[in-house]
């Protein structure tokens, strides 16, 4: 049993980027406004169909966006490194600019620590679009 536990720990560690072992408090299900429930994201039988939830799942997936390692995302334990994700639609009236920030943050700030999600192919183009839809819901 202990062995199995170790294996599980090992796998989850390997799959993590930044090694952040977040024990997420499940948030109530809602399409947008806050982080989706991890149960909703991991439901293989019935995966979320709306892009906002899909985007939210990418944002909190430690192997994908893991945005909450740095940004405070409502509804989930988050790091304190960067801005809080809030009123995004007001702050980013131009969707293309928001997308560009996520695609390659070093364009706006060459010494940023934010990973260049599109440029380094951490996320696909389609995934970035969904992330944009989700954060605009915050």
């Amino acid at each position: 049993m202990q062995k199995m536990f170790k294996i599980v720990v090992k796998i989850s560690f390997a799959a993590t980027w930044l090694g952040v072992a977040a024990f997420m408090a499940p948030a109530a299900f809602a399409a947008g406004g806050e982080a989706p429930d991890s149960k909703v994201c991991n439901d293989k039988e019935n995966p979320p169909k709306d892009v906002v939830t899909q985007g939210g799942c990418i944002v909190i997936d430690r192997t994908k966006g893991n945005c909450n390692a740095c940004h405070q995302v409502p509804g989930i334990i988050s790091g304190d490194i960067a801005t809080r994700f809030e009123s995004m639609a007001q702050r980013w009236p131009d969707k293309a600019k928001l997308r560009a920030q996520i695609f390659d943050a070093s364009k706006n700030n060459p010494i940023t620590v934010m990973p260049p999600f599109g440029k380094n192919q951490i996320l696909t183009s389609d995934e970035i679009d969904k992330v944009v839809e989700f954060i605009l819901s915050l």
């Binding site: 090694g19 952040v20 072992a21 977040a22 893991n66 740095c70 988050s78 490194i81 620590v113």
Partner: peptide
């Protein structure tokens, strides 16, 4: 980046 710029910050809220 991690051990100068971000020293003392909390990655993901628990690291």
């Amino acid at each position: 980046n991690c051990h100068m710029d971000l020293a003392g910050k909390n990655l993901g809220g628990n690291q």
